[in-house]
Design a protein around this nucleic acid. Structure first.
Lengths: 234, 234
DNA sequence: CTTGACACTGAACATTTGTTCTGTTATTAT
DNA sequence: ATAATAACAGAACAAATGTTCAGTGTCAAG
């Protein structure tokens, strides 16, 4: 039961993970006696002894005469531990809540939140991992709609699906956009192509025929489809 | 200097931001006396007085007889604050990483991870907000596949889509499941119905015809579709 | 004015907690 | 074997910290 010279003994590791776990679970660092009881070390002086070692080795930071004044710096694997600010806010940014502002129906104009729309209603939000969204997108430009009805089937979108949109008034070729067609009072989801002065709206389903619109003014781009989510819960 | 009835007084706000800043800067919560000196409150009992109020209002969490046993829950703006217990671990639980174990192709059997599959590879994982998944599901039973090819179009699933599946060998009526058809060596996604001894496999696209299979032994249920995700990034 | 609530003071008290010290046991080097 | 060093035990002490309580001022409603 002795690991002299270099390296971390089992007790060192136990103490490090104890500090980490305690901090994670309780929200504040453990006291010396709490570390002792968690790691089966009966004497406070022994815990103190190890803490001093861990501090010298750069694994933790201690604050003299401060209860629970212990900070984890490195993991037992040597991995840097996210300090409070950096780590947490990084986590927060991984999960974004996108406002679900209404329904998208073929026969009705779809709701588009104003650009200064920022009110946060956790009830009507869709939580999305940041990693699923295109990078560099301004989060405040994103909103979500629930598809109502089977009319978007040619866009491979079902009744009940959730579409996440990015607010925009212009589409680039190849993007799937939500479009309001003035001449037929219809909202539709299509791949957008501007070719030789006319607009080709291509359904996602390759077996279906595109719509060709000669007057681009009839096409009002409401937003770009960023993500489609279909929940099959029951 | 009196703000009776409801709402947060300036002192409440000062204390809240003091706790937050202290935690951010030092890595551990402040003691009562430290809060007092930061917020120009001379008496520990007054700090205690306010802390009790803040706890009742749900802004903080206190641990009796524990030095620095204070946890921030809500901001003075009412915004939820990530503290370690109620924040990070809760956040962590809100965001789950589902292993992306392979592709699903019509002409090939789909990969299904073993039930003891637990190895975690952050590279090949899909991050999903817990709120999008059916509650009560065992997370270790979930895995994700990427759809390859246009053969799942009748299931309203596109090339490149990600389907999140739950491992199961039996389907209940009305569930969308991934099925391996023995007789034609084909993987397919269909709504499953067992009726009068035969199996009806219904495409998600209502305009398409169901497949009726008289011998249920031909149908091998590989998993239940839980979620479909389509990313339109470009 | 009286009453009662709320905000606050100051201090005492009880625990919790960090620190230190003496001494013992185990391990390693010589 | 012997000495030196590391690892540990136990206790005592001092400081930090949470808790409680009797009392003071303020303000608004009755």
């Amino acid at each position: 039961m002795a690991r002299k010279s270099k390296g971390l003994s089992q007790r060192h590791k136990n103490i490090l993970s104890c500090i980490r776990d305690w901090q994670d679970e309780k929200g504040y660092p453990p006291s010396i006696r709490e570390i002792g009881s968690q790691t089966q070390i009966s004497s406070t002086s022994v815990v103190n002894y190890y803490l001093n070692q861990l501090e010298e080795m750069g694994y933790i930071e201690r604050h003299s005469n401060v209860s629970r004044g212990i900070n984890l710096i490195k993991d037992s694997t040597g991995e840097m531990v996210q300090n409070f600010k950096a780590g947490v806010s990084q986590l927060m940014e991984q999960l974004v809540s996108i406002p679900l502002v209404g329904n998208i129906i073929a026969g009705e104009p779809m709701p588009v939140p104003a650009s200064d729309f920022s009110y946060y209603d956790p009830e009507s939000g869709v939580d999305i991992a940041r990693s699923l969204l295109p990078q560099g997108d301004n989060l405040s430009d994103l909103y979500a709609l629930r598809v109502q009805g089977d009319s978007m089937i040619d866009a491979m979108v079902n009744d009940g699906d959730i579409v996440v949109m990015r607010r925009t008034n212009q589409a680039r070729n190849g993007e799937m956009v939500a479009i309001w067609l003035n001449d037929r009072d219809e909202t539709t989801l299509k791949y957008f192509y501007l070719e030789n002065g006319h607009v080709r709206l291509q359904p996602a389903n390759p077996s279906m025929q595109p719509i060709i619109i000669n007057d681009p003014r009839i096409v009002e781009v409401q937003g770009k489809v960023v993500l489609v989510i279909r929940q099959l819960d029951q």
